[in-house]
Each structure stands twice: as structure tokens, then as C-alpha cells.
């Protein structure tokens, strides 16, 4: 009886030490839930969710302060993924969020650009290059299509262009064919 107690006590001490050590050794910086949510968000950084970027929205979701259906670029699939992660029910887009749009990139009309640098300051991912009084241009591969640079331009030379289907981004379609159901 006593030996059993001793064994159990020793075991508890050893395991406790292991757990304590693991907690220190494998300590994760930051809030893992926020990071998990942030990993699902599309990182467009557009602010359409009414938060100043994806991370703040992720933080708000994790804190239970925001709904999961506020990110238009993430689409319905994004909501589904958030619902799966958080173990909550799927929710369609709310009335106050914009409808998802096809993915686009911004294009600067280089002949109109006056080099005011306002768009550079607006771009959340530094996808615009240019210097004061010089023509500006957008690195299409890095543009997330957030549209934040469109409004600040004083000469309206930035427009959004939908990314068109090319051989390089073409996808096989979902099969369509006639089906007979078994009698």
C-alpha cells in the first residue's frame, strides 16, 4: 500500500517536472489562436472587415469581439474554414460587409501619375515603387488588390484590373456531364 503510494507520488513529481520543463522549453510567443486565425485570413490587408488589417481582425475574432463573416476577400470558403477552426456554425456574409469580388491588381496609369507618393504611403504591403515627382508603378506580383491606394490618388490614375484567366493560372473545371440516377 505504502510502496504504491510512494510510486505514484514519485511518478507525479517526475511528470510534473517534465511538464513544467516543457512549458518553459516549448513556450510559444504570442497567442496561438490569433496566429491560427490569421493563417486563414487572406492577408489582403484591405480593412473591409472594419479592422485595420487582417491581424487586428484575427485578434478581435480570438477575443470573441468580432463575427467570423466579415472578410469579403476570404469568401464563403474563408468563413467555412474559420467556422471549422473555431467549432462554430457557418454564417453567411452579414448585410454590412461588401460582396466578394474577383481578385484584382491595381494598375497606375503612368502617363497621368504626378509622383505625389500618396499611394506609396497607403499601400499596406509596399507594393508600389517610385520617388517624389517620379512616375510610380505597382509590382503586380506583390499587390494584394486591397484598393487602399485608389482613393488617395489626387489625379485618379490608379484603377483595379481583374486578373484574367491565362494558361498559367488556368484550372480544370468541375466535371459537368449527364447523369442518370439508378431506378
Amino acid at each position: 500500500m505504502l510502496s504504491a503510494l510512494l510510486v505514484m507520488a514519485a511518478l507525479a513529481i517526475v511528470l510534473g517536472a517534465v511538464l513544467g520543463f516543457a512549458a518553459i522549453k516549448f513556450h510559444v510567443e504570442g497567442n496561438p489562436l490569433v496566429d491560427k486565425i490569421d493563417a486563414i485570413l487572406p492577408q489582403t490587408q484591405c480593412g473591409q472587415c472594419s479592422f485595420p488589417g487582417c491581424k487586428p481582425y484575427a485578434t478581435a475574432i480570438a477575443a470573441g469581439e468580432a463575427d467570423i463573416n466579415r472578410c469579403p476577400p476570404g469568401g464563403v470558403e474563408g468563413i467555412q474554414k474559420l467556422a471549422d477552426l473555431l467549432g462554430v456554425d457557418f454564417k453567411p456574409f452579414g448585410g454590412d460587409t461588401a460582396a466578394p469580388k474577383p481578385k484584382s491588381v491595381a494598375i497606375i496609369d503612368e502617363s497621368t501619375c504626378i509622383g505625389c507618393t500618396l499611394c506609396i504611403q497607403a499601400c499596406p504591403v509596399d507594393a508600389i515603387v517610385g520617388a517624389a515627382k517620379q512616375m510610380h508603378t505597382i509590382i503586380a506580383a506583390e499587390c494584394t488588390g486591397c484598393e487602399l491606394c485608389v482613393a488617395p490618388c489626387p489625379v485618379d490614375c490608379i484603377s483595379m484590373q481583374v486578373i484574367e484567366e491565362k494558361i498559367s493560372n488556368w484550372k480544370w473545371k468541375y466535371p459537368v456531364y449527364s447523369l442518370v440516377t439508378a431506378q
Binding site: 490587408q45 487582417c54 507594393a127
Partner: peptide
């Protein structure tokens, strides 16, 4: 998205 996160 990962690239955009880093850049942001």
C-alpha cells in the same frame, strides 16, 4: 498570403 503577411 504568407508573402503579403511578411510584407505587411
Amino acid at each position: 498570403a504568407d508573402q503579403a503577411r511578411d510584407r505587411h
